[in-house]
Nucleic acid binder design. Structure first.
Length: 410
RNA sequence: GUGGGCGUAGCUCAGCUGGUAGAGCUCCUGGUUGUGGUCCAGGCGGUCGCGGGUUCGAUCCCCGUCGCUCACCCCA
């Protein structure tokens, strides 16, 4: 038993798992790249206040899930729990409001949340995300939803469900929350203890309760979508029409609540039932007030994030890792084999040799395991043979022309 | 933070009502003076998570602790 293990909620990504992750990143880059998104990288940690203000003091993330510490200079630092606030910070810091709007950015990297791990949930996890800042057009709402939908489906994830809602304007949302709170208080005696405790903090959560009498109460509760008015209602109708036109299926879910304070208007989430309890693969929404909250000018924006680990869980078993093309087998000519391996690699051909002192038979076995299509057998008399590991065919080759022979064979 | 399940070889696991450990896979060697993917044989590999208790004796019972895992909360 090893004396050290990866810290709780963290994990190693082993070589055979990297290919699938790389594929997710490559595909994401292609899809968002075609839509004009440029990649941005922000620090793994930020000033704690950025998240406290940006994400919201009342959210679970800020109240109990942040990895916060003091640096040597007495500054309060937090390992980033999400990507939107940092990207907005960078937008402001680099004066991106001077660029043509909207500014389209995407990112991929690790995020940190101090939580009890479970399937699809880790303390250090990875996300891909996209943010489009500087436009309130419903076209942009539709674009980002379609991008994530395209990425997820393109990666082969099926049994995917898109839930869509709108929170309306911040003012409308606040008004609705007050109305809901009043409604809940009026029926307080029928509510479960947990729901009652959250009336002030997060009344929307009451819609998710399993408590029977609570459900009864909520069936008669006003919903946010019913309260959408004026421009908010128009905006949402337009987003829906655009998604319909694009053939993106969704279901309206007025109870959809994302646990971050900065959202307004369009809200969406992709669920996959292959994931168990943590069924959310990714989601996002519009956050027209965030930039202003961070000290910038009023700037509309929208974005999403998706969990790479959850994407991987939802995907079919992925493809195997890469392998070398040629494996050099030799009995007592390791130096010669080594020199040949170096020569092949220099020529751009993946090559390897036995590095464990194996018997001849063991070397052939390793050649097989390595996935190499060709094995080169160096004989004691200086001659060489080229063996096709797929067909088993083998022939003598000119030792001086091995690189060419292998190149020709592949 | 709360609750359930589990912690025996690198991996997956077995171990009956307590008598100081087994299998399969993997890996190495041999079966073929050298040729892999099948098969056969042998071998390497374990402080039975850790600490304490009960007992003549504990992997097996009890307590504690750490870890993993699933779920709640919430979220990726």
């Amino acid at each position: 038993m090893a004396s050290f293990q990866a810290p709780k909620g963290t994990f190693d990504v082993l070589p055979e798992q990297e290919a699938a992750r790389a594929a997710v990143l490559a595909y994401t880059e292609r899809v968002v790249g075609l839509a004009g998104y440029g990649r941005i990288e922000t620090p793994m940690f930020e000033d704690t206040a950025l998240f406290a203000r940006g994400v919201g003091e009342a959210t679970d993330i800020v109240r109990k899930e942040m990895f916060t510490f003091e640096d040597g200079g007495g500054r309060s630092i937090t390992l980033r729990p999400e990507g939107t606030a940092p990207v907005c910070r960078a937008y402001l810091e680099h004066g991106m409001h001077r660029l043509a709007q909207p500014v389209k950015l995407w990112y991929a990297g690790s995020f940190f949340r101090y939580e009890r791990p479970q399937e699809g949930r880790y303390r250090q996890f990875n996300q891909i995300g996209a943010e489009a800042i500087g436009s309130g057009s419903p076209l942009l709402d539709a674009e980002v939803v379609i991008l994530l939908d395209g990425i997820l489906r393109g990666l082969g994830i099926d049994r995917l469900k898109l839930k869509l809602s709108s929170l309306g304007s911040t003012a409308a949302r606040m008004a609705y929350r007050d109305e809901l709170r009043e409604y809940l208080r009026a029926h307080e005696s029928d509510l479960s203890e947990e729901v009652r405790a959250r009336i002030d903090l997060n009344p929307m959560r009451a819609f998710d309760s399993d408590h029977e009498r609570t459900r009864g109460v909520m069936a008669g509760a006003p919903t946010l979508l019913e309260r959408l008015e004026g421009e908010d209602a128009e905006h949402f109708a337009e987003v829906r029409a655009l998604l319909d036109a694009a053939g993106v299926a969704y279901e309206l879910d007025p109870t959809l609540v994302r646990g971050l304070d900065y959202y307004n208007r369009t809200l969406f989430e992709f669920d996959c039932d292959r994931l168990g309890a943590q069924s959310g693969v990714g989601g996002g929404g519009r956050y027209d007030g965030l930039i202003e909250m961070l000290g910038g000018p009023a700037t509309p924006a929208i974005g999403w994030a998706a969990g790479i680990e959850r994407i991987l869980l939802a995907m079919e078993a992925p493809q195997p890792q890469g392998s070398v093309e040629a494996f050099i087998v030799s009995a007592e000519q390791r130096e010669r084999a080594f020199a040949l391996v170096l020569e092949l690699r220099a020529a751009g051909i993946g090559a390897d040799l036995d590095l464990a002192g194996r018997s001849f038979k063991g070397q052939m076995k390793q050649a097989d395991r390595s996935g190499a299509r060709a094995a080169v057998i160096l004989e004691a008399d200086g001659t060489a043979k080229l063996r096709d590991m797929g067909s088993g065919e083998q022939r003598e080759v000119d030792p001086a022309r091995i690189v060419d022979e292998i190149r020709a064979a592949s």
